[in-house]
Nucleic acid binder design. Structure first.
Length: 625
RNA sequence: GCCGUCCUAGCUCAACUGGCAGAGCAAUAGUUUUGUAAACUAUAGGUUCCGGGUUCGAGUCCCGGGGACGGCUCCA
């Protein structure tokens, strides 16, 4: 463990002592555990005789401020293990630590400040006079298991913020306020993208028309990128007999997280928690020649996992997860090429969003070959091809930064991609996993040039990972203001008075021409007109035999209520609609529209053709940005 | 699952220590015909998350369950 502490870490650590001192004065029966410095402050874990609540925090904080001026330096003392234990009568937590430390060293170090003693390795401020009482604040309570072990007692953790200056503390608190505003759990509901129902259950998001538009746009984007690399769509049932997971090994390993179903005939089924076993059975339907390898199956579909209730959180952690999953069945010698293609897809997909991606390589631990399945020779080959791909992509392999020894899955090494969200949290998004285990278990092979049966490998590849989680990151990344190509409603037409309603209808129809046989949907606010269509990416749109539908039209709303124009604009701004087209007397006379861009002022009047040209350019910028 | 906090109209929130469930926005109807972020009037809207209990009386107190949030643990 590193002993180097920067000054702010010393301040935070010293404040943890101060917190413990305040708690011990107010609650002499409490037992202390540990209290380190963390990224934004400090915490300390206690076991209280009687539970405390958030309401007690101001009092504890007040006591800290009372004690602070009475402290100066921390003085170091050494005690033997038995002397040390006397300092903590009946405190099994400290005794456990002392036993542990005394294995390494005879003497246990203590630090004293004011009248407060505590077992500690050091790393404090020179003098408590350095600490400005306005630079820290207790924030909240939380439960935490002793030593992070769920079988051990649950302690009460008190968290505090601490920074070098009052200004930095204020800035951090401001950032938290901003992050709260962007919270996808709140924004996603306000923008009417998804909802939850107590009747359906926790962790099971329901997707509204608007949310579904965004999901499909994202998935289509992934699909267009995959399609050109020879992927084919497949579809599978969402349940399976347990036999499939017994064969794959998931039944034993993940049985707690499987949602099981028993039929009236007492057959056991399970909801699928992943798609790979199903996909293997599509590949295994008939023998394959080396000439038709690789086989690339793409399938965006929901999986179901019995997550513990306390782990659920908005869209970040749910029980029904949509994976943009793909499996490539290929020969070992094709791995490098296939992974390279997937990496291209990942790069192209993430570029328009402006996400900085971090890449991480997870390898096996060669000292423990027993932890991994299959032939060590296969592992060496697989890992070296992943390494080659990393370096060929200009990534320096650094064991401290982006290589995790022993982090490989038991079936193979993997490359993970991480994106940062608005709170600075890193989320794993895309993943490319090499799997030598599943083909073995399901006896997947092709017939090679010599007419021999050749074992193949599988590559698991998800670009977004989970649409739910990716969307939660996107909502917070954009603060709900999706770029034009992704906005569920791209344009809203706002007539100034009822007199212009007919002209507004004409404008809407011009931007979103109804197709033959299409039922004319009621055009009202918050109902995206012909919602399934929309200008996505013009270079991808035309001449695509049935797949491309209406690349010419926009997703458009008309707000024809008899409300003031100010109110209609306010409404559209709150819904983060990229463009507002205001039509009044002047526009009708001049055959123009007045364009207002989201977050901007009036862009002035223009002809409808000019507006179309402008937004086509904007959408096209997605592909090249 | 564990620790803590919370749950009142679609949303944001009121209702002193247990004493008649209310407001703004949204919705609906009417009036208004509006020029770049909230027009006016009226109407409707409730098993106070659910189920028990204590009490003359429960939104409020107690027990059980559900859900949300902050953490812990977990995440193929």
């Amino acid at each position: 463990m590193s002993k180097i502490s920067s000054p702010i870490e010393q301040i935070r650590h010293s404040l943890a002592h101060l917190l413990a001192a305040a708690v011990m004065e107010l609650y002499p029966d409490a037992k202390r555990a540990i209290g380190p410095a963390i990224d934004n402050g400090f915490y300390f874990d206690f076991q209280f005789a009687k539970p405390i609540s958030d309401a007690d925090l101001p009092n504890i904080e007040k006591k800290m401020r009372q004690i602070l001026p009475t402290w100066d330096q921390f003085t170091r003392h050494e005690l033997s293990a038995s002397e040390a234990k006397k300092q903590y009568p009946k405190n099994q937590f400290k005794h456990e630590l002392i036993d542990e430390f005394s294995k390494e060293t005879k003497k246990i170090t203590f630090y004293k400040s004011g009248e407060y003693w505590d077992l500690c390795k050091g790393g404090h401020v020179q003098s408590m006079k350095e600490i400005n009482p306005d630079t820290f604040k207790l924030t909240h309570l939380a439960g935490a298991y002793w030593r992070g072990d769920e079988k051990k007692p649950m302690l009460t953790r008190i968290y505090g913020l601490a920074f070098a200056s009052k200004k930095e503390l204020a800035e951090y608190e401001q950032m938290l306020v901003e992050a709260k505003k962007r919270d996808h759990k709140k924004l996603g509901i306000e923008l009417d993208l998804f909802t939850f129902s107590d009747l359906v259950g926790a962790g099971l998001p329901l997707w509204t028309p608007k949310g579904t538009v965004v999901r499909e746009l994202l998935d289509n984007f992934v699909w267009e990128l995959r399609r050109v690399h020879g992927y084919q769509k497949v579809e599978i049932p969402h349940i399976t007999k347990k036999d499939l997971y017994e064969a794959s090994g998931h039944w034993d390993k993940f049985q707690d997280e499987l949602l099981r179903i028993k039929t009236r005939e007492q057959h056991e089924f399970a909801m699928k928690p992943m798609n790979c076993p199903h996909h293997t059975q599509i590949f295994a339907r008939r023998p394959h020649s080396y000439r038709e390898m690789p086989q690339r199956y793409a399938n965006t579909t929901m999986v179901y996992r019995d997550e513990q209730t306390g782990e659920l959180s908005g869209l970040s952690r749910v029980r029904s997860i949509t994976q943009d999953d793909a499996h490539v069945f290929c020969r070992l010698k094709q791995v490098q090429d296939e992974i390279s293609k997937i990496w291209d897809i990942v790069d192209k997909f993430y570029k328009p969003f402006g996400f900085e991606l971090e890449v991480r390589l997870s390898l096996s631990d060669q000292n423990h070959p027993e932890k991994y399945l299959g032939d060590p020779h296969g592992w060496i080959g697989a890992e070296s091809s992943l390494k080659k791909i990393m370096t060929s992509r200009g990534i320096d392999l650094d064991p401290k930064k982006n290589v995790g020894l022993g982090e490989a899955a038991f079936y193979g090494p993997k490359i993970d991609f991480m994106a940062k969200d608005s709170l600075g949290r890193q989320w794993q998004v895309a993943t490319i996993q090499l799997d030598m285990n599943m083909p073995e278990r399901f006896d997947l092979a092709c017939v090679n040039e010599k007419g021999e049966k050749e074992r193949i490998v599988m590559i698991h590849a998800a670009i977004m990972g989970s649409i739910e989680r990716f969307l939660s990151i996107l909502i917070e990344h954009y603060a709900g203001a999706f770029p034009l190509w992704l906005a569920p409603v791209q344009v809203v037409v706002l007539p100034i008075s009822d007199v212009q309603n007919k002209y507004a209808e004409e404008i809407a129809a011009a931007l979103s021409p109804p197709r033959e046989g299409e039922i004319d949907l009621p055009v009202t606010l918050s109902l995206a007109r012909r919602a399934g269509r929309g200008l996505t990416s013009p270079d991808l749109a035309p001449a695509r035999g049935g797949e491309s539908r209406g690349g010419e039209s926009l997703r458009i709303d008309l707000d024809a209520r008899s409300e003031s124009i100010g109110k209609k604009i306010r409404n559209a701004e709150k819904q983060k609609i990229p463009y507002m087209l205001i039509v009044g007397k002047k526009e009708v006379e001049n055959k123009t529209i007045s364009v207002r861009q989201r977050g901007e002022k009036d862009l002035g009047a223009m002809a409808i053709e000019k507006f179309l040209e402008k937004i086509k350019k904007e959408v096209a910028a997605k592909a090249t940005s």
